[in-house]
Computed example of a mutant assay.
Amino acid sequence: MKKMRLGKTDVFLPVIGLGTWEMGGGISPDPSNDKESIRAIVRAVELGMTHIDTAEYYGAGHTEELVGKALKEIDRDKVFLTSKVWPNHLKIKDMLKSVEGSLKRLGTDHLDLYLIHWPPEDISITEAIKNINTVLERGYTRYIGVSNFSISQLKEAMEASKNPIVCDQVRYNIEDREIEKAGLLDFCQKNGISVVAYSPLNRMGISITASKLHKIAKERNLTPAQIALAWLVKKGVFSIPKAISEKHLVENAKAGDIELTEEEMKFLE
């Protein structure tokens, strides 16, 4: 699978990883599909989707437990592991407790990337960034970043951080292109900050461009979802679609090697 540089680091990640939202529950634990979820995480890594994204919020921590169980079947060094801290845990004592809890559930001694899940509400961005730098400096994570930050919030975070902000994880897909309109995509790319797209398939609710996706997919003997993911690759961003079934996992992994032509991109625009 194609790889891209993460921010200005020396790390190159597969363009398509695996999101884990709703594996093991939404805002509360749901163990009904645990075996399938663990198997999907292991399979994703086997297929080259070695960037696994999770968060302490997912399944109230149960999702991280599932990722931890999957990691027991995988060489940890082959996985780039991302987790996120919830915005009401951004004070230093709370953040340290959160990251230690995440590491315990994940069964690892470090994260590869730790993100502030949403902009802080009860403390300043400057303080939150100072605290996540402390997390990095204590060896809990290799890199730090943010999620759902606007340009102004990102600028404040960059100014406050002693260490590079390597990514902004945001909602982005062929139908929800707010980050383009807001100039965030351009800002990140000009400043060496990777964009990681969550909901890259719009939960398969893509409708406005559905006919165009279907047309290209039919011509190339691919699926509309693969074309939607390939569109993001062409845009120069990482994506982290969630998938459980073997069929969808394989499709997503193959999408990382699809090269859309300039004509196809113009057609989709």
Rank of each mutant, 00 (worst) to 15 (best):
K84Y: 09
F80K: 04
N88G: 01
G145P: 06
N252P: 12
G192S: 03
F12R: 13
K266R: 14
I206L: 09
P87M: 12
G24D: 13
L103T: 13
M1N: 08
I193Q: 05
R177S: 03
P87C: 08
I52W: 11
K218V: 00
G26Y: 10
L111W: 09
F149W: 06
L185R: 06
S147D: 07
I129M: 15
I41A: 12
K212G: 01
G68R: 08
T50D: 13
Y172N: 02
K69T: 02
L268R: 04
S102F: 10
D122P: 00
L81V: 08
L6T: 03
P119I: 02
R5C: 04
H62D: 06
E22V: 15
I240Q: 03
L6A: 01
K235N: 10
F267M: 06
D30I: 02
K8W: 04
T134V: 15
Y198L: 04
G25Q: 08
K78F: 03
R142N: 15
I258M: 04
E264V: 03
K72M: 06
M95N: 06
L201Y: 08
N148F: 01
G26F: 13
Q169P: 02
I193A: 07
E121C: 02
A55E: 07
M204L: 11
Q153I: 00
K155E: 15
S211G: 00
E56K: 06
A243I: 08
K235P: 09
S147N: 05
I227Y: 08
A228D: 07
K215H: 14
H117N: 10
S32W: 01
K72Q: 15
D186V: 00
K8V: 08
K247G: 00
H110C: 05
I125T: 14
S152F: 01
W231A: 01
I244Q: 09
D10W: 00
Y114P: 03
G139W: 05
Q226W: 09
K266V: 09
L81Y: 11
I41F: 13
P120K: 09
F80P: 08
Y140W: 05
G205K: 14
L13P: 07
V67M: 13
K218S: 15
N131Q: 07
I38N: 04
K84C: 07
M265A: 04
Q153V: 04
F238Q: 02
D53Y: 12
I144V: 15
W231T: 03
E262M: 01
R105H: 12
A44W: 13
W21C: 03
K212L: 13
D176W: 05
G236K: 00
A210G: 00
S83Q: 00
T261V: 07
L268N: 01
I52L: 12
L81G: 11
F238V: 01
P120Y: 05
E264Y: 11
D75F: 03
T261N: 02
G205L: 06
R177H: 05
L90K: 10
K72L: 14
H117L: 09
G17T: 02
